[in-house]
Simulated assay, not measured.
Amino acid sequence: MADLGWPELAIIALAVVLLFGWKRMPDMARSLGRSARIFKSEMDQMRTTPDSGADSGRTPGADTERDAGHDARSDIGHDTGYITVHDAVHQADARVAAADAEVARLRAELLRRKHANGSH
């Protein structure tokens, strides 16, 4: 890996400012800090959670489904019976994709109605 000195870092910083604009920099820094905190907490959790434990990777609320007699294995197809973080991310991505599709459908419907009514 190449050594980055102050001139190289200054050029990179200038390129980032030119690409994204000065006004968006605080939001980007805030998002980067939030992501770093989340990553650090996940790494700490992975270090403290035993590898052989059944509780590793569970999402909040999995206990209530299990305690209510709901078999989570039939819903997600895993042998553990718990919804893992990976599965929760995929479920969230699927919900986001469905919401995006619904937004696109509604926009198309709105445009169709505007053109049908003659208003532009």
Rank of each mutant, 00 (worst) to 15 (best):
A62I: 04
K40Q: 11
S35L: 10
G21R: 03
R66K: 11
R95M: 02
E8A: 13
V89L: 09
I76Y: 14
T49A: 06
D87S: 13
G61T: 07
P26Q: 07
S119E: 15
M43P: 03
I11K: 08
H120K: 06
K114R: 09
E102Y: 02
L106Y: 09
G61I: 04
L111K: 12
L110E: 01
D44K: 04
V17D: 14
I83P: 01
Q91V: 08
A98R: 00
D71P: 03
P50V: 08
F20D: 08
L110N: 03
D75T: 10
T84C: 02
R30D: 04
A101I: 00
H86K: 13
M1E: 12
S41C: 08
G21D: 05
A97G: 01
T80F: 01
L19G: 10
L14T: 07
I12T: 14
A29N: 11
A10L: 08
Y82D: 10
L111R: 14
R24G: 03
R107G: 05
R58D: 11
R34E: 10
M25W: 14
L4S: 06
G61N: 10
T80L: 09
V17P: 01
H115C: 02
S74D: 07
G69T: 01
A10R: 14
P26V: 00
P7Q: 07
M25P: 03
A99F: 04
A116M: 06
K114G: 03
G21V: 07
R30L: 06
A99L: 02
D79M: 05
A68K: 01
D67L: 01
G53Y: 02
H70E: 09
A10G: 06
Q45L: 15
L18Q: 11
D67W: 02
L111N: 14
A92D: 15
D3G: 13
G118C: 08
D55W: 11
V16E: 12
S41T: 15
G81S: 10
P26K: 00
D51A: 13
R95H: 02
L18W: 09
R105G: 02
A29H: 04
V17I: 15
H78C: 05
I76A: 04
S52T: 15
D71K: 01
A10W: 08
M1I: 09
D44N: 07
P60D: 05
V16T: 14
A104G: 02
V85N: 02
V16K: 11
V17A: 12
P7G: 05
